[in-house]
């Protein structure tokens, strides 16, 4: 499904963000990427969506080597992966509805599909009554739910969430985690990067622990141990 083969990322002049990573994530898995800030979690995810290129090694998504994709093929790649960020990254000029619809539009979906799917997605993330609100009018938890809704708009096979609860309070944090689990149950691979010990331990799923750019532990039903 998604494979990292001997991947290293070095930021010039000499900061090694990732050091020889070898990983395979299977379809429909729920994987937590754990580790302290600066361990390389975000870098790994940025490589997976080709926001950055590895300095060395290969990355495969469904047999396709993505580090050699041409710029014009990047939109296609990114429509296969849903992405959720710590800072939400919503389009501030667009309403909740339009943020989700935008992702569908760029994917070339028809108006009819969009009109049917957006309310469905909004219901899934629990925001069907806030569709006309702009990001500024939503709480942090609501913004993150819009962001998740948008990530699901392409019906991606993989959902990548980079510290999605980092800016949220406890109640919202667990709402988001429950939502991610539900999405995973519906058949989407979820990769969750977090440094929150409690989340990782509660999830009781596969945990890959990074430290100083290396994988130091990779366990089924793992715990956050450093």
């Amino acid at each position: 499904m998604i494979t990292f083969k001997d991947v290293s990322k070095i930021y010039l002049p000499d900061h090694i963000a990732l050091n020889n990573i070898n990983l395979t994530i299977q379809p429909k898995e729920f994987v937590s990427l754990a580790g302290p800030s600066g361990a390389g979690k975000s870098t790994l995810l940025r490589l997976a969506i080709r926001e950055e290129q590895p300095s060395k090694g290969q990355i495969f998504l469904e047999e396709q080597e993505i580090n050699h994709l041409a710029a014009k093929d990047l939109p296609q790649l990114r429509r296969k992966i849903g992405i959720v960020f710590q800072d939400f990254k919503l389009l501030s000029n667009k309403t909740a509805y339009e943020n989700i619809a935008f992702a569908m539009e760029v994917g070339g979906r028809t108006n009819q599909e969009i009109e049917e799917d957006v309310p469905r997605v909004l219901r899934l993330v629990g925001l069907h009554d806030r569709d006309e609100h702009f990001p500024d009018q939503l709480s942090g938890g609501e913004k993150q739910r819009v962001a998740i809704g948008r990530a699901l708009a392409h019906r991606p096979t993989i959902l990548i969430a980079d510290e999605p609860t980092g800016n949220l309070d406890l109640i919202n944090t667990w709402d988001i985690i429950r939502l991610l689990l539900k999405i995973n149950e519906l058949g989407t691979t979820v990769i969750l990067a977090t440094h929150d010990r409690e989340i990782v331990n509660t999830l009781d799923r596969r945990v890959i622990t990074l430290e100083k750019g290396r994988v130091i532990r990779d366990e089924e039903k793992g715990r956050y141990i450093l």
């Binding site: 939109p75 992702a103 760029v106 708009a153």
Partner: peptide, 16 residues
């Protein structure tokens, strides 16, 4: 510019 980057990340083509 931030919005442009976000659009890229959600898979928008250049013309979009």
């Amino acid at each position: 510019r931030e919005e442009i980057n976000v659009m890229k990340l959600v898979g928008a083509g250049h013309w979009h």
